[in-house]
Write a protein that binds this DNA or RNA. Structure first.
Lengths: 344, 344
DNA sequence: TGATATAATCTACACGTGTAGACAACTCGT
DNA sequence: ACGAGTTGTCTACACGTGTAGATTATATCA
């Protein structure tokens, strides 16, 4: 069917081994004359090495695995696309492929990983959305399989990761809101099972405490990150006896939904209520009013995660193993910066 | 290193072939007693078949390839995530893997395909963003390699595809705008190289013609689909001597950007200017005002595309080969339905 | 009972590649 | 002129699996 190395060898009048030496540029030398003959034959036949056979022989796959979790048919983060793009690009740069597997149900997760890892389908995996006592980490550690994690561990486990300092991001954003004069600030957090949900909540509490503001559990919620969820919880917040005068949401989607709910009730965002999001997705800059948000450098994170993993796969010690990046507060209008400039 | 079939055979006291027969449930019968012994050994050793070796032996990979194009680090459509999810899920349902490859530069595209296809890295590919005289289609056809296309061909080539009837969607949306009383309607189209750009433009012209409205080339543009581009072109439109009183954009991102530009100039969307988008991405429902848009059932499209491809890979004639789905007009507020109800 | 069909298992090889070991031709220093 | 080293090439096998052909034990029927 497809043309193989032996076909090339026959046409070029050399042995199959010589063809391999030409293709891989080693490990044995090949005379210029022979090389030219082989290259000519390869071109003439349109030969492409069979990647599966190469992988079997080399005992590695040059493939990076990524399992992404979808909740009710929706991906948890739109910035995931940035991550995917950067990981894919960095893979390509190193001659790696990217194998993607969606996970619609937590109960299937273990099976997916076992197939990828145990079946040696991939050479290493990238784990995202790390949870408390995450079974995936335990499994990969036990198998001594190469992996890197987007997000920090809870305790001080010693595996390679990159994370954004969520506590710091939230703290800075909270301070910004407080400096603008907002006092009763609600917090829309992420799913409680996620470790980063705790991290960000800690930033929220720290900022409240430092400014002598009370922590009111009625103003705090954990949600899946969709616009619908943001809308729903904000509607509930606004119906409280003492509704919040500002809200910090842990994703831009949540913030967009929350903003929408406030606007439905006739509130002017930025004047009557302050809103800050998290992630800086593209639409954050183009909604009305433009959304103040905490930016995560997802593109860069993807690149570095992937580079780290490939170094581990290739047996090198990664240059950097545990990285925590600072997020950036991007001030637009939803926080009220334009209405309240210098009002404090 | 990893445990292999021979290890299992040794432990169970049977031949390697018998282990294979148990795993694949055939093609030879195995006695219940032996099967039990083998399964026990598999469990005890935690054996997972080596997928690479299986693929080599079976001469197929059970992997679907998808190349996605990014423009300046941004993916062209956020609904792409829906597509990805559904394709991934359908793949998993059939025991297929999904191999993803980003393409940042058109010049690399051919190389990526050659590696995937010629190297037999995947069993079939899904092609998106089909262009005029698309070299990818020519290549895949010449190689007689399994593929399906998201989007229709220009002429009547006979390959399997699924598409949304863009002309019809745009036509209906235009009629809706015209019925609401808008008369000078601008059109923000997609990149001219895309076949679907023509299709949608045809719908625009058809609606104008049927309603006796003139076609003004100054009100028509082709853009990459980002909020920034929508903002930019709308700003230009509004600076014309005779600015448009409504705009139909070929993606929600373009529409969001256009809406933002109009709002910057103090226009009230829905009252002073009508806006309609395309795709129905999640934020369309949660921006202000909520965006009227032409919905594409991307999730369903992904499922059917993938199912079609797998049938072709497995040598079956696909049940349905060329499908054109109707889009749905989702009326919200940006088109002015609430302000102008019954005003004609 | 003996011939024959059937069930269960094993031995052996192929899939396409990478590379170690064997081998031939040639160079070089003495 | 001759061993030692170097360079270029080839032969042969292994990677882990699926399965055809051979082999053996068991059931069936005249």
């Amino acid at each position: 069917m497809a043309v193989t190395r032996d076909d090339v060898a026959r046409l070029a009048g050399v042995s199959p081994a010589t063809v391999s030496y030409v293709i891989n540029d080693g490990p044995r030398p090949v005379s210029e004359e022979t090389r030219a003959k082989v290259l000519q034959a390869i071109k003439q036949l349109g030969y492409q090495p069979n990647v599966t056979a190469q992988n079997l022989r080399r005992q590695r796959t040059n493939t990076v695995g990524l399992v992404f979790t979808t909740i009710e048919r929706h991906l948890t983060h739109p910035y995931f696309v940035d991550l995917l793009t950067s990981i894919g690009e960095e893979c390509a740069r190193h001659g790696f492929d990217l194998l993607l597997s969606p996970c619609t149900d937590r109960s299937l997760e273990q099976t997916i990983y076992e197939r990828m890892v145990g079946g040696r389908r991939v050479a290493g995996v990238i784990v995202t959305g790390i949870r408390h006592d995450d079974a995936r980490i335990a499994y990969l550690s036990a198998e001594e399989f190469p992996f890197v994690v987007l997000g920090r561990p809870e305790h001080n486990e010693d595996f390679p990761y990159i994370d954004v300092d969520g506590a710091r991001g939230v703290d800075e954003a909270m301070q910004h809101l407080i400096d603008l004069g907002w006092r009763r600030i609600a917090f829309i957090g992420l799913s409680a099972e996620l470790i980063c949900a705790d991290d960000r909540l800690a930033g929220y509490r720290k900022a409240l405490e430092r400014n002598g503001l009370p922590y009111d559990p009625r103003l705090v919620a954990n949600m899946h990150t969709t616009e619908a969820a943001g809308h729903q919880i904000m509607t509930r917040f606004l119906a409280l006896d003492e509704p919040p005068d500002a809200v910090l949401a842990c994703s831009d989607e949540l913030a967009l939904g929350a903003m929408n709910a406030a606007q439905e009730r006739g509130l002017v965002v930025g004047r009557d209520i302050g809103v800050i999001g998290f992630d800086d997705i593209p639409s954050a800059a183009y909604c009305r009013p433009p959304l103040t948000t905490i930016r995560q450098p997802m593109y860069e994170i993807g690149i570095r995660l992937c580079r780290m993993l490939i170094q581990i796969i290739e047996g090198k010690e990664p240059e950097e193993k545990q990285i925590v990046l600072p997020p950036t507060l991007v001030v637009r209008e939803s926080c009220g910066a334009h209405w309240r400039q210098g009002s404090v």
